[in-house]
């Protein structure tokens, strides 16, 4: 058990069985207390060059210095705790937006309000052998998006920049 804390703490008669991942750059050389994301048991660990020199030792009653960024439960179909789950995992601040989707963002309009082909599915529009024209015939292919665009223009939601 190193670099992950596989928590076996008895909770309600059965072991917790949660894998808490200790991300390498943060914990490569680190000393302090950390909680299990599921049962919140606090462990003391002392990591030197990625090796757990001491711990994990339970420290009941102590407040944890930090939390794992991610944890999951292999025995329960890999049910998981994402980062920034309050009281369980650590927040991750350094993100491109205040939230991450982790899956494709369906975008119909650019940030200045003009149409961009960022959603699926797209109606069929190819010719022979997968050929495409040099023109997005949005009015015919996606009339609903075109209409929405006209509405945006009327509302003044389309700008040059």
């Amino acid at each position: 058990m190193c670099d992950v804390i596989w928590c076996k703490k008895e909770v309600d008669g059965s072991p917790c069985e949660t894998v808490n991942y200790l991300d390498p750059f943060c914990f490569w050389n680190w000393e302090g207390t950390i909680n299990c994301a599921e049962c919140r048991t606090v462990y003391y660990i002392h990591m030197i060059q990625g090796h757990m020199y001491k711990g994990p030792e339970e420290r009941p009653g102590e407040e944890p210095d930090t939390s794992p960024l991610y944890a999951d439960k292999p025995l329960e179909g890999y049910r998981n705790y994402m980062f920034a789950t309050e009281g369980r995992t650590r927040p991750f601040e350094c993100m491109p937006r205040s939230f991450l989707l982790g899956e494709a963002d369906m975008v119909k309009f650019s940030i200045r309000g003009k149409p961009v082909r960022g959603w699926r599915p797209q109606p069929e529009s190819a010719g022979i052998a997968g050929s495409f024209p040099y023109h997005w015939d949005i009015q015919n292919l996606s009339p609903d998006v075109w209409e929405e665009y006209q509405e945006k223009i009327r509302k003044g939601e389309v700008s040059d920049w």
Binding site: D3, V4, Y21, L22, D23, P24, L69, Y70, D72, N80, M82, F83, F92, M95, L100, G102, E103
Partner: peptide, 10 residues
């Protein structure tokens, strides 16, 4: 996805 990176790289 970010959490997948954290797990894989740990």
């Amino acid at each position: 996805a970010l959490h997948a990176l954290i797990k894989t790289y740990t």
